[in-house]
Design a protein around this nucleic acid. Sequence first.
RNA 1: GCGUCGGUGGCAGAGUGGUCAAUUGCAAUUGACUGUAAAUCAAUCGCCCUUGCGGCUACGUAGGUUCGAAUCCUACCCGGCGCACCA
Length: 391
Amino acid sequence: MISTDEQKVDELLSRGVHEVLVKEELRKKLLSGKKLRIKLGIDPTSPDLHIGRAVALLKLRDFQELGHQIVFITGDFTAVIGDTSDKDAERPMLAQETIEKNKQSYFEQVGKLINLDTAEFRYNSEWLGPLTYREIGEHADLFSVSDFISRENIKKRLDAGKRVSLREILYPLMQGYDSVAVEADVELGGTDQKFNLLAGRTLQEKYGQDPQHVVMNPLIEGLDGRKMSSSWGNTITLNAEPNDMYGKVMSMADAQVGTYFELCTRVPLNEIPEILAGHPKEAKMHLAREIVTLYHGAESAQKAEDNWQSTFSEGNVPTEIPEIQSEGSLKDTLVKNSIVSSNSEFGRLILGGAITRIDNKNEEIKIVSADAPAPTGAVFRIGKHRFIKIK
RNA sequence: GCGUCGGUGGCAGAGUGGUCAAUUGCAAUUGACUGUAAAUCAAUCGCCCUUGCGGCUACGUAGGUUCGAAUCCUACCCGGCGCACCA
């Protein structure tokens, strides 16, 4: 059964949505009670999905909850080509084995948000692989070169004298053909994907299908307010441990909280202003709780909150501390266990007063000697939030 | 293919024969401050050690010139731009 609740449909088309093409038409379809096929594709370029992806995934879930057929495509084929939409640099072609590895962890992570039993999972190598050169040529004929070079991110690179490979230009054709292959009625994606999403419409028309509707979500900014990017470490991965995830949310810039509430949680929209009106720290804690609950359940979220409160707010030692094997001196122990990147780095930390030993009365003693020992059972704190126990 | 400019640390980008492990900015790490942050201030930011005006390795790759090279020469590899036919 398809829900045609008008209020729900309207929220579906507005919450965390930047633009819908073509909105009125899609609204009508949704209200008609027809079961629609909703496509979302993600390329397995990294083993971890991050919270930026959750915006579209949650939207996918919204559609699923209304009873529509969702189709999740793992872009194992497109990952090789590399999308340029959100990049200002050329993306390397990924090795096949990296992709194999990455795609395995996708079910697990996606499964945290959507109901796997009714979802359709596909790999785009299934239909992209068998395409012939002739077919690709026909697809390519549908677009003009100026379509591509006028795209902002491509233009920027060209203007900056950077290289743009022809292979990258093929990308939208492939994503677009995905829509043909799965006969999508709707495709979800970030605003950065607009060109690719529209390519789907063009290709579908060529194949005599009704062009898909497109629901675009805004791109959320990273924790520090800059563009979200895995290489900047300003994001949260969906499979992060509860404590880690909670802490990451808490390290977010205040200005992001409202956006994250709207896009990355399903806290009712009308409750959000009130939450934001309170103390910023409280609001952020609320957000952290919501997000951890989404991926790990309420119980884990509570635990993570208690843990965070205790370690960061009250400065206590956390209850669970990772243990590492002693290698004699503290320096060797930390370096060999990759806690610290090099002996030189260790020396710097000592000089900076970053390493302390925590005794059994929870008192901290600063380590000042570069060849301090690492006795079994000792607990050390490195920097603000890294704790290590010696096995 | 020809011409031309270029390839420097995580990135951007200085440096054109010696004091360059390499200016500067961003990012990062640590300390102080705080509401967790942010902002701000301070320190650090190739590796190794017996921490010294110490050693080693690094400026696309391989050689060469030189007392001495990121800097000069040669070859090669890679990239940008221009040229190419007709006008």
